[in-house]
Amino acid sequence: MGFISVDQKDNLFWLGRYVERVYLTLRHFDELGDRLLDIDSTAYQGYCRRLNIPDIYTDALDFIERYMYDQSNPDSVYSNLSRAYDDGIVLRSVISSASLSYVQMGLDAIDEGRKTHASLLLSQQIIDCLLAFWGCIDDYCDAHQHRNVIKAGRYMERLDMQLRLHDPWPRIEVSLRKLQRRIAGGGLKCDGQAADGIMEYVLKAPEDDDSYLAALKLSHGIIIAD
């Protein structure tokens, strides 16, 4: 179907962002979980700082539980996946029931994890659902432009997370180039100077927090509003 409304386009972009946020968080959680258990039980504090989310957790276990499953915590994986669902449910006719079903299954898996307190065990199942979701988008979302908008959201989120977590430039560059391609394909406008600025900041002082922060700020303006 070729038509989408202005609101649906917005939903599509944010669906991509939230799904990617959950996916990257879970991927990162694997590594962070090991650090919390084996090396530094306060490592979550630095993580919260970098993501600019409030550190409301009493200890590592509280973080693992509430950051994953707490419905009342707006930063939790659960809340972010719920937001993805909220964006997705109004897009059934654009992305297909098949694609939407994987977001629903991810939510079901996270619900199951909440009930059984199997905090990290269910993350693989959720990751599986999200990967299947992206596969479905490629297969079922027929309109090229719609796929580009949702993937612009995906790579915008990836870039954002990478800059916050100080990923090295080669990985950031891949995301940035993909984002630029998707912005163009989605009929959105890209600020080329912002893209160049991100590269300059990250390459100039790769160990410097301020450089990443400046690059992050630039990334927020990379898509020019209509």
Partner: peptide
């Protein structure tokens, strides 16, 4: 689901407007 099955756009009031006594759909395009 019916929008998906019929291939008709699913719209809300904010997507529609009347001009010159005709109903229009404003799309993102």
């Amino acid at each position: 689901y019916l929008a998906e099955m019929t291939g008709c756009p699913l719209v809300m009031h904010s997507d529609l407007f009347v001009q010159d006594n005709r109903l229009y759909l404003k799309g993102a395009g």
